[in-house]
């Protein structure tokens, strides 16, 4: 059932957001602390766990994949509803920030690649958190 996957996705987002809000209250900041990221972790763990198989396989999985494929269209709509007119003065800032970030990241590729080739075999099990 497609709705099972959609429901799993929804529950992940809601729990992530609730935890993010709760963290914000606990830490005394008026912010949702990492809610979307936490929700993504929930979904990754659910989709890697055997006990959630009925919610992630077959048609249920298609329900999640649909929304995953809607990501770029939704980002396009998000771009179209930005307050560009007000931000236009800052165009230079956006350009400089984007270019600088890319140049520094390019420069780091050989540095970290070298780091990896020396101890590639001993790579410990690490999860994204």
């Amino acid at each position: 059932m497609i709705i099972y996957g959609v429901a799993l996705l929804s529950v992940s987002l809601i729990f992530g957001m609730l935890i993010g809000e709760a963290l914000g209250v606990m830490l005394g900041v008026d912010a949702n602390v990492g809610g979307v990221g936490i929700a993504m972790l929930f979904l990754v763990f659910a989709s890697n766990s055997a006990s959630f198989r009925t919610l992630t396989e077959g048609a249920a999985g298609e329900g999640i994949k649909f929304w995953s494929a809607m990501y770029i269209p939704i980002v396009v709509a998000m771009a179209a509803r930005q307050n560009v007119a007000a931000a236009a003065d800052g165009g230079m800032l956006a350009l400089v920030a984007g270019i600088a970030a890319v140049l520094v990241s390019f420069a780091l590729v050989p540095v970290i690649s070298r780091l990896g080739s020396s101890d590639n075999e001993a790579a410990p099990e690490k999860e994204v958190r």
Partner: peptide, 14 residues
């Protein structure tokens, strides 16, 4: 937006 971003995490293999 948040709904779709979270969905992109689906299928990521640890």
């Amino acid at each position: 937006r948040d709904f779709a971003i979270v969905a992109t995490a689906f299928g990521v293999q640890l």
